[in-house]
């Protein structure tokens, strides 16, 4: 019993398909690794006041460039709220009249969710904001990989008959 038959029953893999799969794999790797042209950019300091209320952050989206320094002041407009940022060691907690501040360097590019870390009510687990660190290469690469994979799959399954 071939391994290929387990994945794609009754099709079997012929030589053409194996080459297509291999080339697609290489193109996917390329899409993941190839350095993309970047414009040079002057690093900045951002001072952002992030207002938390049940169940949202204001601004909902923060946009910075990689390497920028962010000074984040979490202020709460109603109950106690927290702030954790996926992929960044941020852990703040604020209450009305008691804000919290952190300064960090946005050294990872991409999109990162802001999440409330203090139980604040029904929609608390979905109290989400986002930090976008440009250039958004992960998104561009993910989309490229998707297109390459789709194209490879079409070629792989294509038949002339």
């Amino acid at each position: 019993m071939e391994v290929g038959n387990w994945l794609v029953p009754s099709l079997g893999f012929d030589r053409r398909q194996i080459s297509i799969a291999a080339i697609t794999g290489l193109l996917v790797l390329a899409a993941l690794l190839i350095p993309l042209p970047l414009t040079t950019y002057q690093l900045q300091n951002h001072s952002i006041t992030l207002n938390a209320r049940t169940f949202a952050y204001e601004p909902a989206t923060m946009r910075v460039q990689r390497g920028d320094t962010i000074t984040l002041k979490l202020e709460s407009l109603d109950a106690a709220h927290g702030l954790a940022i996926d992929g960044y060691p941020v852990d703040l907690r604020a209450e009305p009249g008691k804000s919290a501040t952190i300064t960090f360097v946005a050294d990872r590019e991409g999109k990162f969710a802001l999440r409330c870390s203090v139980s604040c009510g029904a929609l608390h687990p979905f109290m989400i904001g986002e930090l976008i660190v440009e250039p958004e290469l992960p998104r561009v690469r993910a989309m490229l990989v998707t297109l390459v994979t789709a194209f490879g799959a079409v070629m792989f399954f294509w038949s002339k008959t």
Binding site: V8, L11, D86, R108, A113, R115, A150, A153, F156
Partner: peptide, 29 residues
């Protein structure tokens, strides 16, 4: 509360979506 694998979800999401997409393309053809 500890968000497990926070910031790493995409490493699972993208491959899973691509497997689904490849299978969908195979079945469509």
């Amino acid at each position: 509360w500890t968000p497990y694998f926070a910031g790493a979800q995409a490493f699972a999401q993208i491959p899973i979506l691509l497997i689904g997409l490849v299978a969908a393309i195979g079945i469509a053809i």
